[in-house]
Design a binder for these strands. Structure first.
Length: 198
DNA sequence: CCGGCGATGGTCT
DNA sequence: GACCATCGCCGGC
């Protein structure tokens, strides 16, 4: 029921992917083998070079190169000198687009070989997935993951399917922090599951 | 409870 | 040298 999402899942229209990722599970395996599982509850789309809010609107640079590459790779960048943001690359190679994971709900953590469930608080400081910077901090996600695959376990970070969220429970909102993006700032390309709406 | 602002460094001009 | 897809603190109500 919770199968890893394959590369083909990401090689599609970003506006479908950004909705379908809601309710899916972000799985993080730490270096010591501990695993934490978190439900994706808020996502945001950045689509193409025309989208002035999309980093790729600046062109293909060292930083944005991964967005121009094949789908299903992680794109992690540093923001404000102290936080990271986690994205997964979407669409066909050559077309730069990605989905930002804005919030997750920590479900449970498990020993790598599943012997016994343990509480997420066992991972130390209270896990807080409410915000793109906070979830990266708590899941120890850094730019080192950029370019690695979201559709294999090798990177230690991957996504599995979950219980699909019906359209009626999805809320569309304007994107955050992109007031500079002209007409593109008003696109309602941020999505939350209704259960997590303020 | 809230709005404003400072921290802090990578990236691009 | 300016700009940031953020967060949490602090002061005012």
């Amino acid at each position: 029921m919770t199968k890893i999402l394959k590369e083909e899942f990401y090689n599609r229209d970003t506006l479908n992917i950004v909705r379908e990722l809601l309710g899916c599970f972000l799985i993080r395996r730490f270096d010591d083998g501990r695993i934490i599982k978190a439900k994706i509850v808020e996502t945001e789309a950045y689509i193409g070079q025309d989208d002035l809010a999309c980093h790729a609107s600046k062109g293909r640079t060292k930083r944005t190169d991964v967005m121009f590459g094949p789908a299903g790779r992680w794109y992690v960048y540093m923001i404000y000198g102290m936080y990271h943001c986690l994205n997964v690359v979407t669409e066909q190679e050559g077309f730069p687009a990605a989905v930002l994971i804005r919030a997750v709900d920590p479900v449970k953590s498990l020993r790598d070989h599943g012997a016994r469930p343990i509480k997420s608080k066992d991972h130390g400081a209270s896990f807080n997935g409410d915000g793109p910077g906070k979830l990266c901090r708590d899941l120890q996600i850094t730019r080192a993951l950029t370019g690695t695959k979201a559709y294999t376990r090798e990177s230690g970070l991957w996504i599995t399917s979950g219980n699909p969220v019906s359209e009626s429970r999805i809320v569309a909102l304007k994107r955050v922090g992109v007031d500079y993006a002209g007409e593109w700032k008003d696109k309602e390309w941020r999505f939350k599951t209704a259960d997590y709406t303020d």
